[in-house]
Design a protein around this nucleic acid. Structure first.
Lengths: 231, 231
DNA sequence: CGTCATATTGATGGGCATCAATATATGTGG
DNA sequence: CCACATATATTGATGCCCATCAATATGACG
């Protein structure tokens, strides 16, 4: 990747949208491009944090390892997303583990320089505030989602919130291994598999590998709202 | 409460620690003191947000009403805490409901003035960023907590994280009705009650109304780590 | 094509929600 | 100050969902 490409990628990030060109160049100087293989761990909870990241391609999961050794996915991020700003700006340590879910290309943006900018430029600070707020609201959603007792409710809600392609037959592409989706929804892969196959038998979905076609959204919506499955 | 008291309370808030006196006075002018009775609803999800709040005394819960009508407590806040900054700074609408858990005295701080300050003053922005980060990390904890399968694990973890008074017999004061604590931990009040009485029989705690004496922290810690109860 | 991770499917048991009834606590008006 | 009303808390019985263990199937990748 050339310098120019690097800068244009940075420019595309919300934080740097309005940054003067000379400052952006300074940021670019201290930005590293990182290739991560699928499954590769980027950092672990408690590690000191001296940079934040942007996803150029691929995907990253932020997760915590629970006492029993299983993992709980906190966030699942795709191209264009940034992460670890909060760690950088507060405690200087990561509160979660991070790993690539696919082969990924990441930008590692030097924290010291970024901190300076945030501290001195109110617009940059506002931009950071904006992304933190987004993440907060997303987490509030997660908290509510996880509090739903029924596994099916959690999955239905998640499915319905995903962007669905196809007008006549809306389909959701799982951009995540099913085991990771299960971890995110706080259920076992077995349960996820069973729920999907039950729904398929009911005729509510068609499960095609990493693609789920939604055939009966009203029924799914009813499930998301916590109703037991009808008849 | 006198003007001077109002300003000194504001000065005590993290956001205004370093604010010049004249600006603080301007903020104080647009701040209202609000009395809230126990259980009183302050605002509801989706309401437009034109101010943020600080708790002078009492307590406030932020919660979401789930589709089945039950509520999930997202945050439980005490004196000195501020809330609704994120709503003010991003969408302008509350993402949660808020209600006083006790008779409370709150400060309602005008949002427009605050927004101006955040947008113009990088230090104020940094302070906001700090509190948002704290809340983010707290929410990550909540997500992990809720993902623990066993109700006892969630309660044990919560208890051990509370400040405990008393050296020989550490005791936790529940500053929240048990039904609200149950809602926060995503369990029913019945289950909470049963878990407490079981632990009391095991000799691990002594449950005295809104006070829980921790008699056997190692056992509780083992539970928090997801182990099934020994013996 | 062999190897390993992931996914599916089956059988079983335990934990927790649910419904129901009682007890305690909180607060209000006479 | 007590009696009443209401909210909250406890305790019991029952059923079901989901985790667990186990075995097989499918997929990814070298």
């Amino acid at each position: 990747m050339t310098e120019a490409n690097l800068e244009s990628t940075l420019r595309g990030l919300p934080h740097f949208k309005t940054l003067p060109a000379d400052l952006l160049a300074q940021v670019a100087e201290r930005t590293k491009v990182v290739q991560a293989a699928a499954g590769e761990v980027l950092f672990r909870e408690g590690d000191p944090c001296r940079a934040f990241y942007a996803i150029r391609s691929g995907g990253v999961k932020l997760y915590r390892v629970k006492p029993d050794g299983r993992e709980q996915v906190v966030h699942n991020l795709g191209p264009g997303a940034t992460f670890a700003e909060a760690a950088l700006l507060s405690f200087g340590r990561f509160p979660v583990d991070a790993a690539a879910t696919q082969e990924s290309e990441l930008l590692e943006i030097d924290g010291a320089r970024f901190l300076e900018l945030v501290r001195s430029d109110a617009r940059m600070a506002s931009s950071v505030i904006g992304s933190l707020c987004m993440r907060l609201v997303a987490l509030v959603e997660r908290v509510e989602e996880l509090s739903l007792v029924q596994a099916g409710s959690r999955l239905a809600r998640w499915l319905l919130r995903q962007p669905a392609r196809g007008a006549s037959e809306p389909a959701v592409e799982l951009q995540l291994a099913k085991k990771d989706l299960a971890a995110q929804l706080a259920m076992t892969p077995e349960t996820l598999s069973r729920v999907l196959s039950r729904w398929q038998q009911e005729g509510w979905i068609r499960s095609e590998g990493a693609r789920v076609v939604l055939l009966d959204e009203p029924s799914l919506l009813a499930l998301a709202d916590g109703e037991a499955h009808p008849g």
